[in-house]
Design a protein around this nucleic acid. Sequence first.
DNA 1: AAGACGAAAGTGGTTGA
DNA 2: TCAACAACTTTCGTCTT
Length: 307
Amino acid sequence: MPEMIKKCPECASINLFWNREKGEVICKDCGLVIEDKMVDHGQEWREFDPESGERKRRTGAPMTYTQYDQGLGTEVGHTGDLFKLKSKDRNKFFRLRKWQSRISTAIERNLKLALAELKRVSSYLKLPKSVEEESARIYTLAVQRGLVRGRSMESVVAGALYAACRRHDVPRTLDELSEASGIEKKEIGRTYRFVTRELGISIMPSNPADYIARFASALKLSAEAQSKSVEILEAAQKAELTSGRGPTGIAAAALYVSALINGEKRTQREVADVAGVTEVTIRNRYKELLEKLKLDKDVKKTKKRKK
DNA sequence: AAGACGAAAGTGGTTGA
DNA sequence: TCAACAACTTTCGTCTT
């Protein structure tokens, strides 16, 4: 296979780091996130048509949750098979067929729709396949437990996606999910919490560091600034400034400070926008960082150097 | 004029009686 | 179920660059 050698469009370095899990390709030299959202060009086979039309050729399809029946549908055979049966069995056969269409259609139709929606949102956010799979699994479980009742399908899909993102340490903010799915933020949060609680899915509180790479590249910060912000983050965690606070706020503040120190000043507004928090929050975190970590020296130093 | 800063009031969610 | 509470937001006025 002719593997294309990719270069960083920013600095033309070929020193790239591919984080498969997060679906990010990061330039080690300049820190640019080249493909923060990898589209999976894998199979794209259709997932409709079982009802009528041609029979499925599912031979050897990989088992996957993004397939509404996980690619393993049990089908009560086709009329062609009937010739082999005696009349007694034939009744049974028809009964089974009827049954199947009764039970399965309700759930399966829902799943089909939901998974289509899920894929839509997922590809809009360019989430890696692993996350898509996970969220499909979560959604399937949720449906089986009847957790969708009383909630809109879309909101549960969004909730499942959000949960899957968190579990895979590839966090998207609620705002992003909200924008992609058209569901209100609080609604997503609600179903997210509900679903995870009901399914007993444990989720670590998301780590601010997971946001750094994405935010930094959105702000076009240098690799130095980015790694500096990670340092700051670690120091902040040691100083216990992070517990109980919103991870995005922390990440944003760390980035803001490190940008300042590195002489790549970004306005609070810019940082706030990409991080999805307000300037005030950044200010508060920022203030804490300066106090507890005595970083103000560093900030002043670079200020003087500029003059 | 724009950005940074801070105070005050409001929001949604958690917790504990 | 309700009130207290923490984190975060919104809004707005003031100060700094």
